[in-house]
Write a protein that binds this DNA or RNA. Structure first.
Length: 269
DNA sequence: CTGGTCACCTGGAAGC
DNA sequence: TGCTTCCAGGTGACCA
């Protein structure tokens, strides 16, 4: 569920609530997530939360002598609740912080809770990640270089975390609509002009979603426990058969790399 | 190294 | 109403 904007909104919501607080305990109700929650995680009591960073869709909780690595997978969400709040069916993990608790809910269990004592960027899951789309390093020249020789469609290219991180299935379709580029276009054929449209389209799409508090899909719950993020209007995502908001042509749904892609056949060439 | 496919897991919606 | 099938925001593992 969560793409980069949801993870970033979660990070911004969590950090002021957790920074400076001391871990008083850990509860693991279901250790079998994407990977089994390692034993070190159960032994974190006494450490202080220094801050929370984000790399791609990973949240990195700085505990001084190491980092707790959190990933929300397809259906994960994090909330901060009062200590003692009764856990629900899919509430697998708690980080207890005195009078409050950071709780991970993840029905599909594709998420992860890991620990690393080494610099997190050297962790095997993070070491080979691509460029952050909201960074200055991600510009038209860089995108154009990256696409040279890439033998996949531009939609699949955008979703490949070894090239660009954080652009998931919703925002890949949305960004390509904004840039007026056909999602089936071969990456290697992306022109400099198209790269110059696509980079700001991606940045604007992600920033708009962050500003909106994350695109509100069903099971995303804000870190403060408030439900009901503003439902963003998508240009094309999940709008198969409905009229394009720009030209009224019916939005088309295709499958690329086993994932649904939505686009306007008239606006995107 | 690249690209294509599968796997992991649960729940909601649609179809019969 | 109840059963079956399909689909879903991610991404590592494996294969040719």
């Amino acid at each position: 569920m969560p793409e980069l904007p949801e993870v970033e909104v979660t990070r911004r919501g969590l950090e002021p609530q957790l920074a400076g607080r001391v871990i008083s305990g850990v509860a693991v109700r279901e250790a079998r997530l994407r990977w089994r929650i390692p034993r070190e995680v159960r032994l974190l009591a006494g450490r202080t939360v220094r801050g929370i960073a984000r790399r791609a869709k990973y949240l990195l909780v700085d505990l001084g002598d190491g980092h707790l690595i959190l990933h929300l997978g397809m259906s994960g969400s994090l909330r901060v609740l009062a200590a003692g709040s009764a856990p629900g069916k899919h509430d697998h993990f708690d980080l207890e912080l005195g009078d409050r608790v950071l709780r991970l809910r993840d029905p599909r269990r594709f998420g992860a809770v890991l620990w690393t004592a080494a610099p997190p960027q050297t962790h095997r899951l993070l070491a080979h990640l691509g460029v952050e789309p909201l960074s200055r390093a991600f510009n038209a020249r860089r995108l154009h270089e990256l696409t040279r020789g890439a033998n996949v469609s531009i939609k699949q290219f955008l979703m490949d975390g070894k090239r660009i991180v954080g652009v998931g299935n919703i925002y890949a379709s949305e960004s390509l609509f904004r840039a007026g580029i056909d999602p089936r276009k071969a990456s290697r054929k992306l022109s400099v002009e198209e790269a110059k449209r696509l980079v700001p389209a991606i940045k604007r799409t992600l920033l708009a979603a962050i500003r909106a508090g994350g695109s509100s899909l069903r099971d995303f719950v804000g870190s403060d426990g408030a439900s009901g993020y503003f439902q963003q209007r998508h240009w094309v995502y999940d709008r198969a058969g409905q009229p394009c908001r720009r030209c009224r042509a019916p939005i088309r749904r295709i499958v690329q790399g086993q994932r649904a892609t939505y686009y306007c056949p008239s606006c995107q060439k």
